[in-house]
Amino acid sequence: MNIISEVGINSYLWLAAILFSIGVMGVLFRRNAIIILMCIELMLNAVNILFVAFSVMHNNPAGQIMVFFIMAVAAAEVAVGLAILILMYRNMGSVDIDTMKKLKW
């Protein structure tokens, strides 16, 4: 039996929407840059779930390949992002995004 035919594709849509919103809220809520990065990972995974669900629904492996690519990009992003955070910590002694206010006139 196919899970999608049992719970409906809409359930996956709700799940993804909720996960994505939690991610967004986390980005807004927290000031620690590392946790913001993790929230971004949450958002990416919300999208991943949808990709896989639709891939199965349409019987098309392209969606799963896309998830594979997203994971790869996320890994690269996290590697660079964390490197930047380390650099930032080294220079400013904090990873609080409120300490970064030089980006203005």
């Binding site: 999608i4 594709i9 809409n10 849509l13 994505f20 919103s21 939690i22 809220m25 807004l28």
Partner: peptide
């Protein structure tokens, strides 16, 4: 803000039909 986004997403998705698979 996060709740608002969720609300909007949900309200956008609400009308979607459950396509039989």
């Amino acid at each position: 803000c996060g709740g608002l986004l969720l609300l909007i997403l949900v309200s956008c998705l609400k009308g979607a039909e459950n396509i039989p698979v």
